[in-house]
């Protein structure tokens, strides 16, 4: 296995996406190769650093209220259209078309 292969497969290695045999071969190479060992460590740290820094923002109450409000507007619209729509409209139109 060459360094280029390690570089190509390193993400899958970190994601546990490789079979045990291939992992073993990679591990052997990494243990003996300073360059690939540095690649593994720095990739691992890059991922864990971005995970650590992805703090959770609290949703502002005003945003939640705005979403509720928009949903209520649509709910009211739906209720209105269900209440005032002529239930037999389609039948009526079909009859009208036939008469023509």
């Amino acid at each position: 296995m060459k360094c280029e292969d390690i570089c190509r497969l390193i993400s899958e290695y970190l994601d546990d996406g490789l079979d045990l045999e291939l992992r073993g071969i990679m591990r052997e190479h990494i243990n003996l190769c300073e360059r690939c060992s540095a690649l593994l460590k720095t990739m691992k740290e890059t991922i864990s650093f971005t995970r650590r820094m992805s703090e959770t923002e609290k949703v502002p109450d005003a945003v939640i209220n705005r979403v509720y409000c928009e949903i209520h507007i649509r709910y009211e619209r739906r209720i209105k259209s269900e209440t005032f729509a002529p239930p037999e409209a389609s039948k009526y139109n079909k009859k009208k078309e036939k008469r023509r």
Binding site: E57, K58, V67, I71, H72, R78
Partner: peptide
């Protein structure tokens, strides 16, 4: 058509969706 249930779903998942957007 239960709007209260939908509001509860927003309450449960809103934080994750907002953060994903961020």
């Amino acid at each position: 058509g239960d709007i209260g249930a939908f509001e509860e779903l927003i309450r449960m998942t809103g934080g994750r969706i907002y953060n994903l957007g961020f």
